[in-house]
Design a protein around this nucleic acid. Structure first.
Lengths: 144, 144
DNA sequence: CTCCGATAGTAGGATGTCCGACTATCCGGC
DNA sequence: GCCGGATAGTCGGACATCCTACTATCGGAG
C-alpha cells in the first residue's frame, strides 16, 4: 500500500509542477502531450483515434483535449482524406511555436525531475516497467 | 521525459485497477482513502482540514469527497466541539463495514501491484522517495 | 451489390482536482 | 474587551478523465 501511495503522490506532485510550468503558455500537461505527439508526427497531423491510442486515453478525452487546443488556435481539425469517418488533428504554426517554447521551459526544470540524475530516472523507468507491461502499455517504441 | 511518462502511466493504470475493484462498493479510490483515514483515527472522526492535510489534497476536494460519502451514508458531518469554524467527518457504522469489505477486496488483488513482490514494492517507494521529499511530502509517518 | 457488424468521433453525465472568492469563527496584541 | 489578521469550510468555475449512447461511415460476407 505504501508503494501505491508513492506512485499516486509522485504523479500528483509531478503533474502539479508541470502544469505550473506550462501555465504561462495556457497549457496543461495533457494538452502539451498531444501537441508534442503532433509535432513528432511526420506530417504534423494524426487521426484523433491514433492520439488516444498513443496517449492511452479514452476517445472522449481526446475530443475534449483537441476541442480546447483548437479553440486556442494551436491545432486545426481536418477531415481525414483516407477515412470518411475520421478527423485529423493538425498542429498550426502557432501551435508549433508554443510547443517549442514550452518544451524549452520544461527542459529547464528537467521536467520536474531535477532531483534525479540520468541513473535515477532510468531506475524510475525500470521499476515501473513491470506494471506498465502487465497492463499492456508497452514501453517499447512502436514504429509509426 | 521517459521517467515522467512512466510515473504518469503507472498512476493511471493503478488508479484504474483500484477504482474498478472498488466499483462494487460504489467507491472510488479517493473516497476509499478518506474512509480508511477515518477508520484509523482513534475516534473515527477528523476535522475536514486534517483530512486534506493527510491526503495532500485541496480543501475543496475534501468538501467534495465528504459530500459524496455523506450522501452515501458512509460518513456523517458533525460540528467540531472544539472549534466553531470546524466540521468533523465521522465514519458511520455502514461506512466501517464497507471500508472493511473493500479493503479485503483490495488486498486480494495486492492493491493493483500483484506484479511486484515485497522487494519490488520497496524499490518503488525508495525510488520515488526523493521526489516526494523534495516536494515536502514527508513519507515519514507523523504521530497522530 | 447489398447488408450488417465494426470503427471514428461526439454529446451528455459523473467524478476528482485545483484556484479564487466568500463567510464565519478564532485568537493574540493593545 | 475590542480589532484585525489567520484559519476552516464552502461555493462557483475550469480542467481532465471515464462511461454510455448515438451518428456516420467503412468493409467484408454472401
Amino acid at each position: 500500500m505504501t508503494a501505491v501511495t508513492s506512485i499516486m503522490r509522485a504523479q500528483q506532485i509531478l503533474l502539479g509542477e508541470l502544469d505550473a510550468a506550462l501555465k504561462p503558455y495556457e497549457l496543461t500537461f495533457a494538452r502539451y502531450e498531444a501537441l508534442v505527439l503532433l509535432t513528432f508526427s511526420s506530417s504534423g497531423a494524426l487521426p484523433l483515434g491514433k492520439i488516444g491510442e498513443r496517449l492511452m486515453v479514452h476517445p472522449t478525452s481526446v475530443t475534449n483535449t483537441i476541442d480546447r487546443l483548437e479553440r486556442q488556435g494551436l491545432v486545426r481539425r481536418r477531415p481525414n482524406p483516407r477515412d470518411g469517418r475520421g478527423t485529423l488533428a493538425e498542429i498550426t504554426e502557432r501551435g508549433a511555436e508554443v510547443v517549442e517554447a514550452a518544451t524549452r521551459d520544461l527542459m529547464a526544470i528537467d521536467f520536474g525531475l531535477g532531483a534525479y540524475d540520468e541513473t535515477g530516472q532510468a531506475e524510475i523507468f525500470d521499476v515501473l516497467r513491470h506494471l506498465r507491461v502487465a497492463a499492456g502499455d508497452f514501453p517499447v517504441k512502436e514504429r509509426r
